[in-house]
Design a protein around this nucleic acid. Sequence first.
RNA 1: GCUCCCUUCGUCUAGAGGCCUAGGACACGGCCCUCUCAAGGCUGUAACACGGGUUCGAAUCCCGUAGGGAGCGCCA
Length: 462
Amino acid sequence: MTTPAVTRFAPSPTGAVHLGNARTALFSYLWARKTGGRFILRIEDTDVERSQHRYRDELIAELQWLHLTWDEGPDVGGPAGPYVQSERGAIYAALFEQLEAQGDAYPCYCRPEDLEIARKLQRMAGRPPRYPGTCRALSTAARRERAASGLRPTLRFAVPSDRVVEFADLVHGPQRLQTNDIGDFIVRREDGTASFFFCNAVDDALMGVTHVLRGDDHLANTPRQLLVLDALGLRRPDYGHVGLLVGADGAPLSKRHGSTSVQEFRQRGFLAAALLNHLVRLGHTGDVDRWLDLPEMPVHFRPEHLGKAPARFDEAQLLHWQKETIARLSPTEVGTWLGAGGDPRVAELLRHNVVLPKDAAPWLAVLRGDLPPLGEQERRILADAGSGFFATAAAAITESGADLPRLAKLVSARTGRRGAALYLPLRLALTGCAHGPELAPLLALIGADAARRRLESHAQDP
RNA sequence: GCUCCCUUCGUCUAGAGGCCUAGGACACGGCCCUCUCAAGGCUGUAACACGGGUUCGAAUCCCGUAGGGAGCGCCA
């Protein structure tokens, strides 16, 4: 358990960082930190169509926001660079050559349209859609002929027949798959770039990755990658396929579930530590229930407790960790989190009543003197206290100032009211709301003058 | 269609044949504390998908069924 694990996060810069990806990144990060190993960031941008620089920048920004720091990566370098796949063409080229020379790969001249048709036919015939092997047996002459006619081939891996690929999945246990169930797959596209099955596996091996944690959706594809690695004589990493992260309805997380990217949660005002605390419990159980700071998470991370079943993302639970996180923020941190940037006393006052920054708005309005309309029940409580009560209170505040204990003492002595009968009408007159933050600091912030005016406004009515 | 994977309270999960009249956390309800809300303390409701085996004994092992998911791409 103490052998240092080299793990990685290998996103493709084709969109915002999804929660599911963030979770596997977190698990990988924790594993490396737990064992004193290394955590690598690798950018898988072989899909030139969809990859964008801004996504890469965003992705890095989100990981930094989460404080998931990497030891090797595109920005910090490292011994196995470059860490961006689009810059690793030369490395792949040599490997393609080796594969071809060994007879483990062959050029394929089939056109996408033809393959599409073949797939359809196979499906209709009730057979799994697989590459029929058209180009596998092409003679050298035939290959030359096609090449001469200007066709640019892809490179296909020649999957050996009648063999069984076995591996021990870190979370699913022993796996075996017949090679006959796997069609020859493309390792190099027509444009010369490497395909996922190839470069993803190869880079893991080349970068010394020992443990690959990824989503369940890759489980069935792992044998292909193992085949490539074996053919190239590269070391197989251990693979762990964690159950997918799904929405509340059990369907794969998508836009219709609301926020699904790290960015969206950050923009809504969720704290990184809150997100981390929720994610670390999705499809994983540590050895403690309590809120954890990122630096102490590795100790409590238990790879053997990674789950196979899909986990539902439940915002109610995220909210809980958000509250826990807020409770641990320093006053200045609360201030910056709430935006306003202003008074630390305001931040301190609101921190227990706000889970997202937007929740602060009504209270900031109350401080400004912009009270919410009174409800039926609130009016009844005010009427019950009576205008005399508020006249007394307004008079008392000129003596006590914005000092609640003193004010309460005076008003209590003069009206005989105490407890809820005393505080509730005061709170209502002052804030317009029956519940909210502590009244004493609230009063102090409202100030004696504004408070007196609010009390007086209720002293008029009959 | 074929192959593979998954299935414990509403949710996240503990559980690796007897320790389980199934434990914890979140959510929900009640009580306490309290000017209110939040927090905190106590407490309650609530689950082994189904059907067969194996066994003295099964949430745990085996086989089926159902439901869900993934893969079979010049996406990753």
